[in-house]
Design a protein around this nucleic acid. Structure first.
Length: 862
RNA sequence: GGAUGCUUAGCUCAGCGGGAGAGCAUCGCCCUUACAAGGCGGGGGUCACAGGUUCGAACCCUGUAGCAUCCACCA
């Protein structure tokens, strides 16, 4: 027997362990079932899981649990990401607190610390997965740095190298001077920062003239090789080909012309620093200038900078500007706000810098994706619009810098001959006496990109899991990770397996705080899922977080809505408790037979079937919000507020009528529990196990099946009239200041909505008397299609007349509306037949009601 | 500069071609034995604005405004 109150803590206790021990989450136990697979987006081992993870994994769990009930052999594969740069930044920060740097520990020692960190956070992530109730197959858990993934990473690297799609090159890359590594474009966060725009005067050699050049980064002037103007610029044409003096170091620079220069920007004259700016780099290549690096890997000035050597870039900037000012070459300093790139992980201002890195040549890989997305089998995005995000990125792609000067990650399988320096790229390490391995590791996303197939045993394509579960069925992820991850999985998978890694990508939004702000550490507005679970239970959190936003839309966290989710679950809980009490110990479920059902049963079953159909359809479309609200309406309106209340009467009748009522109650509550189950597995399991004839777990049940033959529109229409009558009486009492439970005399004419409805009306409207009369009635009337109901009380004729005349107005309005629509030839011709008929029926009913109403008004006026 | 999304009840949001919905808030009445974490009944909306398509538009198209996000550029 269920407890009187739904206590989430009590309900959740012990269930997860039981599920895991019973092996319910394990895939491949019945291979006669069709496979359905998905892999978890591996969380970073950098910290605790937040509400975003809770949302993402709950969607996945709903899908996994739903598909299992629909008869699939579901594999939901868990795992975590080593998150190279993110984790290394965290571990370094922790060491820094102890006054240690990674260089003090050395590579080996540092990696030991990193693995300790990983173990600690992996344990905490496991604990959270358990709390969330995720039905993951732990027997297949993977880690991006494990042996299998490492093998796959090497294989991919070597293959791409051999195919000429990986190369080493000296390029301008984004350099994080704090973590001392190169970054890829998408690891840079641009933000608008205030800054200074310095205008300097450059004297022209052998002339008294000068030109003014503006820059935001004076410290890079030691690396300048030229000044550029636009060839069409009338201000400077006469100086083109001359030389100017660099005010930073007095060196002569050529004054060149190139149409790249924007005449309207700054002074129209631009300094060129080939080693510290990607555009200048391109210009330098074009004109054959040297590349002079002036910064070291920690963004301190190097030996090229004379007296400024050893200074930090900002100290140098300040000192240099002072010097130039003192020498009279500073024209002005303009305050500007400009977009500055910061490292996503360290927050440091990124320095564009020339360095030798490994790159993936993206064009061929991206083109393959673009071509694939034009085929039938393309990866389908839900919602559709997110496909454009992928396509746009793929069409404007630049080569991917994959080497990182870090230690935590997959070490690049490139080896240098100690004597010749020649590069050897190989999956197996050559003799260490002859070769030394490249010091760098790969970008984390290089391994994450292989996740859907490498976790299934690839590159061994004969692996049973790869054969059975790859390609995966769906991928669920937030929109902010489409570039980083989704796109890379797609191109690697297409290239290496010849297949897309998943059929569908289900994109969801982000969870924001109650004010709509992004949750962040600096704002301190993050909400810990464990706190929410503690207060409302995990089922309420799961329900809230997956049903309160349309697909792909952000949502705000709201305590009130989690509480409301809990109240809903409590509602079902109590309905279940009622049914359980009604059924008693010795009830044995019987299948529903339509011919045995009464009108009320037919109405409820009709609505139940329609609900099953719609909820199932929405679940199949991954429209979890719509599925849940369809069920919600049925639970409240049809089941709890109507049928459950009516059942109190039919049960009292006893006999076969009561027995049928029990059957209907049983099947309905069971189907409700089964439909809410993917959202709220813990409380569903508890309720399910309290029902007669249950299996060992709700996890063994099948999803409710829509049965068309149980539909009954006639019964639904009849009961709708009864419901309207009850509501009208309640409203009548409320608006006339009559106590709800005060008795009134009721009569209907010429017949009831359906045989036996009077008893229900009497009870729920608190009637003191109830009669069916064939003749027209005196008193305060309510009109329905095919019948009327009267309250036979002494009512002020004025009040009555007013109410009748309001009703008359509304009928007139309705009739006019119907007539207008039906007199439109276009409507009759083009609208669906059912619509036209429904409108005609409505018009006829309203007209009949109006006739009755006007007779009443007339007799009242006499 | 380019792209995408949003604008619906006091607040937070669903709905996205056939008569405006939910939660919370609000007002009134009820401790009626499943549920007071509740029940019953109400009030509250020219669905941003302007055009267009359609028999019919909150919903489709075009434009405008405001807000948000992403990408690119910024010497």
């Amino acid at each position: 027997m269920l407890d009187k109150h739904y206590d989430p803590k009590k309900v959740e206790e012990g269930k997860y362990e039981r599920w895991v021990n019973a092996g319910y989450f394990k895939a491949g136990q019945d291979k006669s079932k069709p496979p359905f697979s998905l892999v978890i987006p591996p969380p970073n081992v950098t910290g605790k899981l937040h509400l975003g993870h809770a949302m993402n994994t709950t969607y996945e769990d709903i899908i996994a649990r739903y598909k299992r009930m629909k008869g699939y052999d579901v594999l939901w594969l868990p795992g975590m990401d080593h998150a190279g740069i993110a984790t290394q930044a965290k571990v370094e920060a922790k060491l820094r607190e102890q006054g240690i740097s990674r260089y003090d520990l050395g590579r080996e020692g540092f990696l030991k610390k990193a693995w300790e960190w990983k173990d600690e956070y992996a344990a905490s992530i496991h604990e959270q997965w358990k709390k969330m109730g995720l039905s993951l197959d732990y027997s297949r858990e993977r880690f991006t740095l494990d042996e299998g993934l490492s093998k796959a990473v090497k294989h991919v690297f070597v293959t791409l190298y051999q195919e000429g799609l990986i190369y080493q090159g000296e390029r301008i890359t984004n350099w994080d001077p704090e973590l001392r590594t190169a970054l890829s474009n998408i690891e840079i966060v641009h933000q608008d920062d205030p800054g200074d725009f310095f205008y300097f005067r450059y004297d022209i050699v052998d002339s008294n003239d000068s030109i003014v050049v503006a820059t935001t980064r004076p410290e890079t002037m030691f690396g300048d090789t030229a000044v550029f103007v636009n060839p069409k610029d009338p201000r400077y044409q006469k100086y083109i080909g001359k030389q100017v003096i660099n005010p930073a170091n007095g060196e002569k620079l050529p004054l060149m012309a190139d149409s790249y220069v924007d005449m309207k920007f700054g002074t129209g004259a631009m300094k060129c620093t080939p080693a510290h700016d990607p555009n200048d780099f391109a210009l330098a290549k074009k004109y054959g200038f040297p590349f002079i690096k002036v910064l070291d890997e920690t963004a301190h000035m190097n030996e090229k900078c004379g007296p400024y050597q050893g200074m930090d870039r900002y100290e140098c900037r300040k000192a240099l500007v002072e010097k130039i000012k003192a020498e009279g070459h500073l024209i002005k300093i303009e305050k500007i706000v400009h977009s500055v790139g910061h490292s996503e992980r360290s927050g440091a201002v990124v320095e564009p810098m020339l360095s030798k890195q490994w790159f993936v040549k993206m064009k061929p890989l991206a083109d393959a994706v673009l071509a694939y997305q034009k085929t039938q089998g393309k990866v389908e995005f839900l919602p559709k619009r997110f496909e454009k995000v992928l396509l746009r990125w793929m069409s404007n792609i630049e080569d991917w810098c994959i080497s990182r000067q870090l230690w935590w990650g997959h070490r690049i399988p490139a080896y240098y001959n100690k004597e010749t320096g020649e590069v050897l790229v190989s999956e197996t390490a050559p003799d260490p006496k002859l070769y030394r391995q490249d010091e760098d590791v790969l970008d984390t996303w290089f391994s994450s990109a292989l996740w859907p197939f490498a976790t299934m045993g690839w590159p061994d394509t004969t692996s049973p899991d790869y054969q059975r579960y790859f390609p995966t069925s769906v991928m669920v992820t937030a929109y902010d990770i489409i570039f980083f991850w989704v796109s890379r999985m797609v191109f690697d998978s297409l290239h290496f397996t010849g297949k897309a890694p998943f059929q569908k990508v289900i994109i969801h939004g982000l969870v924001r705080d109650e004010q709509g702000r992004k949750m962040s550490k600096s704002l301190g507005n993050g909400i810990d899922p464990l706190d929410v679970i503690d207060r409302y239970g995990v089922d309420a959190l799961r329900y809230f977080i997956t049903t309160n936003a349309a697909p792909g839309m952000d949502m705000r966290y709201s305590d009130a809505k989690v509480a409301s989710a809990q109240a809903y679950l409590n509602k079902i809980w109590n309905a279940c408790r009622y049914v359980e009490g009604v059924l008693g110990e010795d009830y044995t479920p019987r299948p529903l037979e339509k011919k045995k059902l009464g009108t009320l049963d037919r109405y409820l079953v009709d609505h139940l079937e329609r609900t099953i159909k719609k909820v199932g359809a929405k679940m199949d479309e991954y429209q979890f919000g719509q599925a849940s609200s369809t069920l919600y309406d049925f639970v409240y309106d049809d089941f709890c507020s109507s049928y459950l209340e009516f059942s109190k009467i039919s049960l009292a009748h006893g006999g076969e009528e009561a027995a049928v009522t029990k059957d209907v109650l049983y099947w309905t509550i069971k189907d409700i529990i089964l439909m809410i189950y993917p959202y709220a597995p813990f409380v569903s399991e508890e309720m399910y196990l309290s029902l007669p004839g249950h299996l060992d777990s709700i996890m063994l049940e099948t999803y409710p099946v829509y049965e068309r033959k149980l539909l009954d529109k006639k019964a639904s229409d009849q009961v709708a009239i009864l419901l309207a009558m009850i509501k009208d009486i309640r409203n009548y009492k409320s608006s006339h200041g009559i106590a709800p439970n005060a008795k009134v005399k009721l009569a209907v004419s010429p017949r009831e909505p359906f045989a036996g409805s009077g008893e229900y009306l009497t009870r729920f409207a608190f009637a003191s008397s109830y009669e069916i009369r064939p003749e027209a009635l005196e008193g305060s009337p309510f009109l329905y299609p095919g019948c009327e109901m009267v309250v036979e009380e002494d009512v002020d004729p004025e009040v009555l007349r007013k109410r009748l005349s309001e009703q008359q107005d509304s009928l007139h309005f309705e009739i006019a509306r119907s007539e207008k629509i039906l007199s439109n030839p276009g409507f009759l011709q083009k609208a669906p037949k059912a619509k036209v008929e429904a409108e005609q029926t409505k018009l006829a009913q309203n007209k009949a009601m109006l006739v009755t109403l006007e007779e009443k008004l007339h007799s009242l006026q006499k």
